[in-house]
C-alpha cells in the first residue's frame, strides 16, 4: 500500500520562495515525492494524514482560481485544514502594509502561508517576518516555483529524463514569472533552454545559457522537444511592445501552419493556462495528443502536495526593527 513517501536525506526547508535557491538534488527529491502522491489520485480515498492538525492559509492578493484551487486540494489531500483569503492589494493604500496583514494572520497561528501577490519579493518579505512556512504561489514578474516543479514533473512523466533535452519557451519572457522559474528549473535539471519572442519582450541581461532565435522557424530548426507557450497579457499592446495582437500571432504565435510542422515532429506543447486562443496559440493545439496542458493541471496538485509535505515551519530572520535595536 502506498503511505507517505520515505523520509529522505534531503533536508527540508522553511520556505519555498523561488527555484533559484533549490539545488538539482532538492528539485529531484520533490519530483520523486510527488510521484506517490499522484498515484493516490487513482484511489477512492485520495487522502493521507501527513498534515493532520496543520493549518494552511491561502493568502491571495491577486485574483486566481486555478492555482488557489490546486493548493487547496493539495492541502486537503494531506489532511490539513485550509482557509482561503482573498485580500485586495489596495489595502496598502489604506495604510495597511502586507506585513500588517500577515501579523493579523499570524495571530491565527497558521503553519503554512501560500502567498500570491502582484509585487515581486512580497513572499520573501513575509518569509523573513513569519514563522509559518511560506510558499510562493506567484509574485509579480519574479517567480512561480510550484509551476516550475509541476512542469518538470510533467516533462519527466512524458519523456522519462531531462538531460540534454531541449525546451523552447515562447512569448512574453520579460514579464513572465513562469518563464523565469521554468527556465531556471530546466537548466538545473540539465535541459537546454531556448527562448523566443518579440525583441521588446526578451529581457536585457537574461542568463547566458538561453539560446535565442530571430524567428519561430529558426527556433524550430533548433529541434526543441518541448515548446512552452506563455500566456500573453493583452495590455502589453498598449505599452507598445508590439503593434497588434494580429501581428503578434502571425509572427510570434503558434499559428496553424507552425502547428502542423510541430505536430508532424511530435513536439510536446505546454502552457501554464489560461490560454488566449488565436494569440499565443491556435485552437487546434488544445486537442493535440501531445499537448500536456491538462496533465500540467493534474500534476499541479501532486507537486504542491510534495512541497507542503517537504517544508518545515520554523523561525523567521530578524526584521528591520530588530536590526535597528541591535
Amino acid at each position: 500500500m502506498i503511505t507517505e513517501p520515505n523520509p529522505s536525506p534531503v533536508h527540508s526547508r522553511k520556505d519555498l520562495l523561488d527555484i533559484e535557491s533549490l539545488s538539482a538534488e532538492e528539485i529531484n527529491h520533490l519530483l520523486e515525492t510527488a510521484k506517490p502522491f499522484k498515484e493516490l489520485f487513482t484511489r477512492s480515498v485520495k487522502k493521507v494524514p501527513a498534515l493532520r492538525g496543520k493549518t494552511v492559509l491561502n493568502l491571495f492578493f491577486e485574483p486566481s482560481t486555478r492555482t488557489r484551487a490546486s493548493f487547496e486540494i493539495a492541502a486537503k489531500r494531506l489532511s490539513a485544514d485550509v482557509t482561503n483569503l482573498a485580500v485586495s492589494q489596495s489595502s496598502v493604500v489604506k495604510g495597511e502594509s502586507v506585513l500588517d496583514t500577515v501579523d493579523t494572520m499570524q495571530s491565527m497561528k497558521v503553519d503554512y502561508l501560500v502567498v500570491r501577490h502582484g509585487a515581486a519579493g512580497i513572499p520573501n518579505q513575509i518569509a523573513k517576518h513569519s514563522p509559518a512556512s511560506v510558499i510562493n504561489a506567484g509574485d509579480g514578474n519574479h517567480a512561480h516555483p510550484t509551476q516550475a516543479l509541476l512542469d518538470a514533473f510533467t516533462i519527466k512523466e512524458a519523456m522519462g529524463d531531462f538531460s540534454g533535452r531541449k525546451i523552447l519557451i515562447a512569448g512574453d519572457i520579460l514579464h513572465s514569472r513562469v518563464a523565469r522559474s521554468v527556465s531556471i528549473c530546466a537548466n538545473k535539471l540539465g535541459m537546454e533552454v531556448g527562448i523566443f519572442g518579440p525583441p521588446t519582450l526578451i529581457p536585457h541581461g537574461h542568463p547566458d545559457y538561453f539560446h535565442t532565435f530571430n524567428s519561430f522557424e529558426h527556433a524550430l530548426e533548433w529541434e526543441p522537444e518541448v515548446i512552452y507557450l506563455l500566456r500573453l497579457q493583452l495590455e502589453r499592446q498598449s505599452a507598445h511592445f508590439f503593434p497588434s495582437l494580429r501581428e503578434y500571432h502571425q509572427v510570434f504565435g503558434m499559428t496553424r501552419e507552425r502547428f502542423e510542422l510541430v505536430s508532424r515532429k511530435g513536439i510536446y506543447i505546454m502552457h501554464p493556462g489560461p490560454v488566449n486562443r488565436g494569440v499565443e496559440l491556435t485552437d487546434e493545439v488544445l486537442t493535440y495528443d501531445r499537448s500536456l496542458i491538462n496533465r500540467q493541471v493534474e500534476n499541479g496538485i501532486a507537486a504542491r502536495m510534495a512541497v507542503l509535505y517537504w517544508l518545515q515551519p520554523g523561525i523567521p530572520s530578524p526584521t528591520i526593527e530588530e536590526k535597528a535595536e541591535t
Binding site: 519579493g121 514578474n141 523565469r180 536585457h204 541581461g205 537574461h206
Partner: peptide
C-alpha cells in the same frame, strides 16, 4: 537598474 539582476528579481528596470 535594468540588467541581469532586475531580470532575476523580476523587477521593472531603469535603463
Amino acid at each position: 537598474n535594468e540588467g541581469a539582476q532586475s531580470y532575476r528579481l523580476g523587477l521593472p528596470g531603469i535603463p
